[in-house]
Design a protein around this nucleic acid. Structure first.
Lengths: 209, 209
DNA sequence: CTTTTAAGATACGTGTCCGTATCTTAATCG
DNA sequence: CGATTAAGATACGGACACGTATCTTAAAAG
């Protein structure tokens, strides 16, 4: 056993550098979920992260700064690639992905900031500038554009309202029920709202025969 | 000049009874809008109402109680009566009414509670029980049912998703822009989303010729 | 190994809010 | 008018968080 191995055998008690920052980020998101924006404190984040306030103040001047960094680090986002010949399936996949994201601590943080954007305008602005552009990240828009480019959809149908449909309904359902929409509800969103709005109404097509 | 008129001539400095409660209610809603649920305090409400904490504690034990009473008192709601032969116009009227309500302090309070329902479940529950049933108050549903009963709409089209469409889009637009949707946007919601979902697609109808 | 770095622990004065207690006094009642 | 009621003002001890300062010590560097 070399001296290096002996050193490894003793359990580490302190986190340093990136490991510590990662822990603090996770703690910030969890603390936000627990207490909300108005009650987010350095003491709370530090307590939850199991670290000292000094470690936080060495890097950030306020809890909102910690939160923004946490969101940015946890936010990497990939939108599913459309299949090419299954509009309905791809819309469903996109909505499922949205629902999956809604279950993350990051989504909860983004929602909290959006909900209180009038009270914390600087925070909301910083979210846009430092994390994402507000109009980006539409899960269904990628799919719609993909199929319009291939001639499956009349491009004139892809208006801002139609592009917003899927997300608006998912958010509303989630808010009303305080639970993610079911697969059945996602299917209903696609079949009863999105496709009709695109001029591809399943109820009308089956009624053709 | 009688003694009663003399008494009226001296400016009153204190509010009593209902007048005081009304002031406190308004203050509670305004304070909530300013600081949010997490920072709503008795001291804040009292300060804003220009009264003493004792006056609050004589009636309520916590700021959330004040808030609930304020919402209930300010919440009376009337949905516009449909016209009978103007589905599109009535849907627009209903959406305008929703937008008008969204501009009230009460709506902001309801939104705040809904946004933080996971952090304040008791408060959210009390909102449902003491103020309104969660599934009530759908602005467009009254219109849809009215026209279905008259045969203008296939009742099978009025699914929960379709019933939710208008409100979901209005909420999303308002949230994204931090401003009420414009009249043009309301028109787009009706023409591009609601009517197609009802099988009454304007774009398809005009394409008939 | 020693030195350096930064993580962690704690103290401190200040400010805000809580909920209760006490008192003064405007407004209403009889 | 006097008596009663409740509105308003203020004090108080305790809890919590702030941001800064100081010190100890684990971990990394050389």
């Amino acid at each position: 056993m070399t001296r290096q191995e002996q050193k490894r055998a003793s359990p580490q008690t302190r986190r340093r550098g990136d490991a510590l920052v990662q822990s603090i980020h996770e703690a910030a998101l969890a603390e936000l979920a627990a207490v909300g924006l108005g009650r987010l404190t350095m003491e709370g984040i530090a307590r939850r992260a199991g670290t000292a306030k000094t470690s936080l103040y060495r890097r950030w001047s306020a809890p909102h700064d910690v939160l923004l960094d946490a969101i940015r680090d946890e936010h990497p986002q990939e939108v599913a690639s459309p299949a090419a010949d299954d509009l309905r399936g791809d819309l469903l996949r996109a909505l499922r992905q949205l629902v999956a994201w809604l279950g993350t601590p990051t989504a909860a943080a983004v929602a909290a900031i959006m909900a209180e954007r009038r009270r914390y305008p600087e925070l909301a602005r910083a979210l846009y500038e430092r994390v994402f552009d507000a109009r980006g990240g539409r899960f269904t828009l990628t799919v719609l554009r993909f199929y319009a480019a291939r001639g499956h959809i009349d491009p004139a149908r892809i208006t801002p309202i139609v592009a917003d449909l899927g997300e608006a309904l998912v958010f509303k359902l989630a808010l009303d029920a305080d639970a993610p929409p079911s697969e059945e509800q996602l299917v209903a969103i696609v079949d009863q709202a999105i496709l009709p709005a695109l001029g591809l109404d399943p109820a009308r097509r089956s009624g053709k025969s």
